[in-house]
Every structure is written in C-alpha cells, then in structure tokens.
C-alpha cells in the first residue's frame, strides 16, 4: 500500500479517514512550527493550523497529485497566514505573543554555551524579518524544502525565492550583529 504523502491523500480523498489521520500525525509538528514562526502568536498559529487541515480534509476528494503534498499543505497554511498578517497590519494589531516562548524546545537539548544566546537572538530577530522573507527562510531552513518547491508554495519565481532567502538571512545576520554590539 502506498504510504507516501500523496498516496495517503488520495486514499483520504476516497474516504479513508485513517489515511488522513496518518498524514496529520506526520505533518502536524512541522506545520505548527511553521505557523508559529510565521505568525509569532500561538492562538493565530493554532487557528491557521486547524483551518489548513480542515480545508485539506474537506477538499481531499478533489486532490490531484500534480505537486508534492507538502507544497499543497504549506501553500494553504501560508496563504491563511498571509491573510492574518494583512488583517493585523490593517488593524495595527501587535503580533508578538509572549506565550510563544513556550515554543522553546524541550528538555532534550544539550547544554550549550553561546548557542543559547544565538537562539534567543534569532528568536527575537525573526520579528524584524518581513513576512515575505521570513516564510522563505522558514521553508528552506526549517523544512529543508528545495527552491523549486518553495517557489510553488509562495507562488514566486525561483530567482525571487533565492533573493528573498538572501535578504531574510541578511536581516537575521544584521539583527544579530546589532544585538552583539548592544551587549
């Protein structure tokens, strides 16, 4: 039996709920991480996460494996996130959610010296990265997606994806430098 994402999604489209549940289990943590980092707010991220999977479930029967499943999934979540970010900008809402610090990983981390500072710095600096750059950085660095797939998710040309990645990393790098100078 085809246990690939695409195979499971096709089975889900035919009414196999167990297949959809397996897909959910497989992708829930990475997708939630992406939503959290995109929106920087746990409640908004939870809403988008749930709506994305609900949308997938409702439209499962219309799914055609013309692209990778992850492309489909992340494009849905990304578009919903952009919608929320636009609304925030319209209403001038504050994105920062102190509760997001809960997203700090776990107890299994090895003790580190400077890397903890870098982590904290990156977490703060991510705020400064514009969403169109942030999403590319997250998809590439966090999810390890190929450029071609990222281009499909964000619906931009390949060259634009690379330049946004460059710019996003530059934002982070400069923010880290400023932080270092401030110390």
């Amino acid at each position: 039996m085809d246990a690939s994402d695409e195979g499971l999604m096709l089975r889900a489209g035919a009414g196999d709920r167990e297949a959809f549940a397996r897909l959910y289990e497989r992708h829930k943590a990475p997708l939630l991480q992406f939503c959290l980092q995109m929106l920087r707010n746990a409640e908004d991220a939870g809403d988008v996460f749930q709506e994305a999977f609900r949308y997938l479930y409702i439209h499962a029967s219309t799914y055609r494996p013309t692209a990778k499943f992850t492309t489909y999934l992340y494009r849905i979540a990304r578009n919903m996130s952009i919608d929320i970010l636009r609304r925030r900008r319209r209403w001038n809402l504050q994105p920062l959610d102190p509760a997001l610090d809960l997203a700090e990983p776990p107890d299994l981390r090895e003790p580190r010296l400077e890397s903890d500072e870098i982590e904290a710095g990156v977490r703060d600096a991510m705020e400064e990265v514009p969403p169109s750059y942030r999403e590319v950085v997250l998809l590439r660095v966090l999810r390890g997606m190929e450029y071609a797939e990222i281009a499909e998710v964000v619906e931009a040309p390949l060259g634009t994806v690379k330049s946004r990645l460059h710019a996003g990393l530059e934002f982070l790098r400069r923010a880290m430098r400023r932080r270092k100078l401030a110390e």
């Binding site: 709920r17 959809f20 549940a21 959910y24 829930k28 943590a29 939630l32 991480q33 959290l36 980092q37 746990a42 991220a45 939870g46 996460f49 749930q50 999977f53 609900r54 479930y57 509760a99 809960l102 997203a103 700090e104 990983p105 776990p106 981390r109 890397s115 870098i118 982590e119 904290a120 710095g121 990156v122 977490r123 991510m126 950085v137 997250l138 660095v141 966090l142 990393l169 982070l172 790098r173 880290m176």
Partner: peptide, 27 residues
Amino acid sequence: IASAVRRCTGTPDALLSRLDGGMAEIL
C-alpha cells in the same frame, strides 16, 4: 543562524494537544 533557527522552533505540547482534539472532532 540556520542552526539556531532549527533549534529554536519547538512546538508547545499544550497547544498541540488542543489541536489534536480539534482534529479528532473533524475526523
């Protein structure tokens, strides 16, 4: 920076549990 981005993104267990519950209802 890339290494830090990968490390600093965890998922809050409480939030994920709540979302699991919501998904179970949908399914």
